[in-house]
Computed example of a mutant assay.
Amino acid sequence: MPVNGFGVYITDYSTNRTVELPVNPSELTLKYETDDKSETIVNLGEINRVGNMKLVSVSIDSIFPKKRSSWVSSDKLLKPDEYINWLKNIQSNKHHVQLVVSSTQISVTMTISSFEYGFKSGYADEYAYTLGLKQYREVKYHKVNVPAPPKPKPRPAPPKKLGIGSIVIVNGRLRLDSYG
Score class of each variant (00 low, 15 high):
41 I>K: 07
161 K>I: 13
26 S>F: 08
91 Q>I: 09
44 L>Y: 14
131 L>D: 08
144 V>G: 00
45 G>D: 05
107 S>C: 07
8 V>P: 01
88 K>R: 11
35 D>W: 01
60 I>M: 06
41 I>R: 11
36 D>G: 14
5 G>I: 03
61 D>T: 08
21 L>K: 02
177 D>E: 07
179 Y>H: 12
3 V>W: 12
110 M>G: 11
3 V>T: 12
35 D>V: 08
7 G>V: 01
131 L>I: 05
62 S>L: 04
137 R>Y: 06
4 N>A: 11
108 V>Y: 13
58 V>C: 14
120 K>C: 12
54 K>N: 08
132 G>L: 00
166 S>K: 03
28 L>H: 06
92 S>T: 15
144 V>R: 07
145 N>F: 11
126 E>S: 13
80 P>D: 01
96 H>Y: 12
83 Y>W: 09
31 K>V: 15
152 P>N: 07
35 D>L: 09
95 H>I: 03
83 Y>R: 01
176 L>F: 14
48 N>C: 02
47 I>Q: 01
23 V>C: 04
73 S>H: 12
159 P>D: 11
168 V>K: 04
148 A>L: 13
56 V>Y: 01
159 P>G: 09
83 Y>T: 06
68 R>Q: 10
159 P>A: 14
157 A>K: 15
131 L>A: 04
137 R>N: 14
56 V>C: 09
3 V>I: 07
53 M>E: 10
100 V>Q: 13
134 K>Q: 06
118 G>V: 09
37 K>C: 01
105 Q>A: 15
179 Y>E: 12
128 A>T: 10
5 G>E: 07
44 L>T: 05
70 S>P: 00
13 Y>P: 00
81 D>I: 10
105 Q>S: 15
112 I>C: 05
35 D>K: 06
76 K>Y: 10
18 T>D: 01
153 K>Q: 07
22 P>S: 13
53 M>W: 10
36 D>S: 11
123 Y>N: 06
69 S>E: 09
76 K>F: 09
61 D>E: 04
128 A>S: 12
135 Q>P: 05
79 K>G: 06
108 V>K: 15
28 L>A: 13
23 V>D: 00
70 S>D: 02
108 V>I: 15
21 L>F: 00
168 V>F: 02
73 S>L: 06
105 Q>L: 14
83 Y>G: 02
